[in-house]
Design a protein around this nucleic acid. Structure first.
Lengths: 207, 207
DNA sequence: GGAGATAGAGAACTGTTAGTTCTCTACAAG
DNA sequence: CTTGTAGAGAACTAACAGTTCTCTATCTCC
């Protein structure tokens, strides 16, 4: 239909492999930051990345996998686990890191992927690994340190107790029942996490 | 294209109001039970209910609202809040009710609606009201009874502590990290809920 | 019981998106 | 230089959301 065909980008320098991957991830993140996950289409990503849809589908089976990979790329490197000598401060630090992550672009991406995961158990398994691998692992390490210091009874360190704090954080993220601000995180830590591990929040702990 | 136009259902007895509503809800639930939420389309619902899409859209603005209403209809009546004289048994009863609900058709429907809610804050608010209104309200009442009995210190009854148990239940539902079986519920109650309210699970409580 | 308003059935239609496939061609490897 | 791989761009199919149209059953009010 267009009489003037415009520049044929097939003649431009052509990216491959990692370089192209990077450009696609950037396009995904930019789209999400700009218009949100629900407005993210494969066409738009392809156009923005100046890639072809065929290239997208050669790399990922669908939108969920693509966004999950992009989110993984956007994650900051594995945070070093805090070890301040206070369970309260360590916990708070981890929760703050998690909260900050969920409030950014990665959070937006995760919200979208989570929506797909709810319909597709395979995606759910990937997300689970992705999300749980971090918070839980860090919490576990923090608690091991607290046990070493004698701050916490090792019998209290069980999977469900470890998950309680992160679960409340994720619930607020998912249901949007309020901002993930410091007030919220402090309350969760003081009212729920520390009591579960037999630590008195008011025992001269710094913020 | 079809030479034989088939029976024109416009001449059949025509349902209205509540009767038609009922037929539509039944179609939605049947579709979800049969093929899951992701295979649920407005066309299929209309066809199955022998209703017109126009009728659907006159009643609901979109799929999410329709399914939310259908799920609400499928909910058992407001469970009467248990009051057995034991916080442990009361809590366990409520958690069991919730778990059973989430494992059935209502759960499947909620999974779908939740997926939409993640992208749309308005839907999220509806879901929040829908989901929280029940579990939290019941938990609150149970705890009020426990306080009355002197089983629990009233200062411990705070929003975040109340939400901890339900949040773990919802997390398991959402991430599908395992079955919502009685083992799970008992562990959550004994390891998390009761300790948060200063009750010793092993204090001669029945199952 | 008749007139007019309301709303349901069914079909056609539009626009958007996922996913596929085709052609053409850059680039890498031998 | 030859050949295989894969990227760019476009065309295409199929499915679905949402709208609108026609026809007509059913309700309401007189």
């Amino acid at each position: 239909m267009t009489v003037v065909p415009g520049p044929d980008h097939r003649t431009l320098p052509r990216r491959r492999g990692a370089v192209l991957n990077r450009a696609i991830f950037d396009a995904v993140l930019a789209e999400i930051a700009e218009s949100g996950y629900s407005a993210l289409t494969m066409d738009r990503v392809a156009e923005r990345a100046r890639a072809s849809k065929a290239s997208l589908y050669r790399r990922w089976p669908g939108r969920a996998a693509l966004v999950l990979d992009a989110a993984y790329e956007a994650m900051p490197g594995p945070d070093t686990v805090p070890n301040t000598g206070s369970l309260r401060l360590d916990t708070l630090t981890v929760m703050r890191q998690g909260g900050r992550l969920l409030e950014g672009i990665v959070g937006q991406a995760m919200r979208g992927v989570l929506g797909e995961a709810l319909q597709n158990p395979d995606v759910a398994a990937e997300v689970r690994e992705f999300a749980r691998g971090n918070a839980s692992r860090m919490m576990r390490e923090i608690l091991a340190n607290a046990v070493k210091r004698g701050e916490c009874d090792p019998d209290l360190v069980t999977d469900f107790r470890i998950e309680a704090g992160p679960a409340l954080l994720r619930q607020r993220f998912i249901f949007g029942s309020g901002p993930i601000d410091d007030d919220f995180l402090v309350e969760v830590v003081d009212q729920v996490v520390l009591p579960l591990f037999g630590v008195d929040p008011s025992a001269g702990n710094p913020t």
